[in-house]
Amino acid sequence: MMAVATEQPAADLREPAGWRRTKNRVATVLMWVAFVCTLVPLGFVLVTVIAKGASAISWQFLTKGPIPPNVLPVTIGGMGPAVVGTLEITGFAALIAIPLGVLGAVYINEYGGNRALARLIGFMADVMTGVPSIVMGLFIFTIWVLHFGYSGLAGSFALGCLMLPVVIRSSYEMLRLVPDSLREASYAVGATKARVTVTVVLPAAIGGIVSGALLAIARAAGETAPLLFTILVVESTNTNLFSGPNTALATQIFINAQQPFTGAQQRAWGAALTLIAIAFILMLAARIVTARFTRYTR
């Protein structure tokens, strides 16, 4: 096959020879086959989750608690505590990670220039996106849970650590697209750098930053591993993020998936559908923000 590429091309303007055309066609078909191969599992998962989850979901399932023991059917109790837990834990994680991430990106792009430190931070943020989520869970366990106990807050910290590098990366990409002429115009009328950044640069890039942040939240909402060792598990709603064990949809799916009882499995499917719906809504919101509020694109 390599021979084709290195072969001396003949000065021949006829159509490619039959076998060359065939090879080209086979390659194209294989590429489409590969694409279909990625769609098959996606389609299967979505269809299964929707089919099995829809029968479990009801207003009671989404809002009521407590989460009943495994053996009970899905009509008793509900996943309300897990929905509340997921929303408050993910929400607080976003509250921590998004401002810090955007500020970090501001440092790299606005203050860092070509400094080695800024390049190091950018590079390490990329590396940090590759740290397994379970390691983040162990990290928060050793540094926080061992001293202050299990709480939703600890879960928020773990999710925040996962979101931080993602937010830095996406915000940095957006800040980079803001043209320098905007900044220079602001300096020319005497604004300080902080003022230029906050009132000119960030607003110019806000569409991309928000959509990147929404995608980061969507990913974090589905994380399970970092929550296992940080929030533990409870059956009833714990609205206090700062103390006492909590629970979340993702961890509930993990626990219930391992049960042989139909009730538990149905609860897992219902929770899975809820979680996917949350993630897709966030992703859709990100797309809408990108389409409507992005001023500069690549």
Partner: peptide
């Protein structure tokens, strides 16, 4: 102005701090 710069620098450094802390505490 200076405060904002320090804030941004601190947020950036947080990445390095977290990575080091992960290694040390675990």
């Amino acid at each position: 102005d200076r405060g904002f710069q320090i804030l941004a620098l601190a947020s950036g450094l947080l990445v390095l701090v977290i990575l080091v802390l992960i290694a040390v505490s675990t």
